[in-house]
Design a protein around this nucleic acid. Structure first.
Lengths: 197, 197
DNA sequence: CTTTTTTTATGAGTTAAGTCATAAGCTTAT
DNA sequence: ATAAGCTTATGACTTAACTCATAAAAAAAG
């Protein structure tokens, strides 16, 4: 999101995390702007039974945990390293200063926020609709678009059935069965378990 | 959200709409910043079977349909006057200019966006959890907080069971039954159909 | 103060997703 | 190359929300 050189110039520091490591917890307070440099992060809520709901998978270049930077409330979801990863962190006041001094960057930031809201609107509408097929295909469509920004040569989906389940509140079995069914109807091209597009 | 005098100074105009009137449609393009002055607006998606999913009810002072102002994509949801209402509209370029000239206002706008995202995170987590009681109580809790900003003397919930159903993707009957059950467990105070808090 | 409309209420039956158990197919590591 | 672990696959059973139907209660309109 923000240029790494700019972040470094403002005193940001790199931090290495290993797969499974908690970066911050839901409900805790925030002092940093976080941006992913390398690896993968999942931004999650955990329910009473310990089941994870994945709000988003974060890819390199994206920021995460940004709500408290604006409204001073605790984190709405926790962040966990989904793989070994490198993040870059900047202190909150410096982040505010950057936005203040660069209106174009602030606008880009607002644009990113609205795009995240857009995705939430989309997925929420689908979940409320209680139709696994349409939830899954909306998610796949989004990831197809999203993946283009990260890996231009990717032609197959980088999500497992379990990850799809974790982002839609469905069970793995339901996702597997629904996707099988979509394949039979010719709505998905699956080869050796992987979705191609 | 934005001061009405400021909006008028920048050439905004009032528009009256009657209950049920479409203000803008999901998927259409956007040329205005919209802010509600009086009445109530619902921001909705309609599924294949014609069932409405209410993303949010908009109260006076709030803006709506703001995503396309930043990313130039079509509206993610449509807006319908839930009652007779007065809205104020400002042309897109003027809106951009206001933000550019007033960094503090832009910051307040970003804060509003993150708060909306926060609510989406919250409700999405609940919907994915498939637990009507917790979906409903999360929604009620949110509205309790939210209502304080609009009507300080309100002591009862301004939402019908149908409206709760429309925001959670549940059926009216399920909402009624679940709320009855919550009352029996002493988790809700209901008197003559209305929820008090 | 009626009449009409909306909202809340409740029962009975259906259905689709969840649950649990088990196994086969791919990857990755030693 | 073999074992271990993750991912996909499939069947049988259960359950909780949906559906439909009907009615009482409350609010709004005339």
């Amino acid at each position: 999101m923000i240029d790494i050189d700019t972040l470094l110039a403002w005193g940001a520091a790199y931090k290495k995390v290993t797969a499974g490591e908690v970066i911050f917890r839901e409900g805790s307070n925030c002092t940093f702007y976080h941006q992913l440099v390398e690896g993968k992060v999942r931004w999650i809520n955990i329910n009473e039974e310990g089941k994870e709901f994945v709000q988003t998978f974060i890819e390199p270049g994206e920021c995460f945990g940004e709500f408290p930077l604006f409204d001073d409330e605790p984190y709405a979801a926790g962040a966990i390293a989904d793989s070994d990863a490198v993040i870059i962190r900047l202190h909150k006041p410096a982040f505010h200063q950057i936005l203040k001094e660069d209106p174009a960057l602030h606008f880009a930031f607002s644009k990113m926020l609205t795009q995240r809201l857009r995705f939430k609107f989309l997925i929420l509408k689908e979940l409320a609709n209680h139709n696994p097929e349409s939830s899954i295909s909306t998610l796949l469509k989004y990831f197809k678009e999203h993946q283009k920004n990260i890996c231009t040569k990717c032609n197959k989906l980088q999500l497992t059935r379990q990850q799809i389940a974790d982002m839609t509140g469905l069970r793995v079995e339901t996702v597997i069965r629904t996707m099988k069914n979509m394949q039979h109807k010719g709505r998905l091209q699956i080869s050796r378990g992987k979705v191609y597009y």
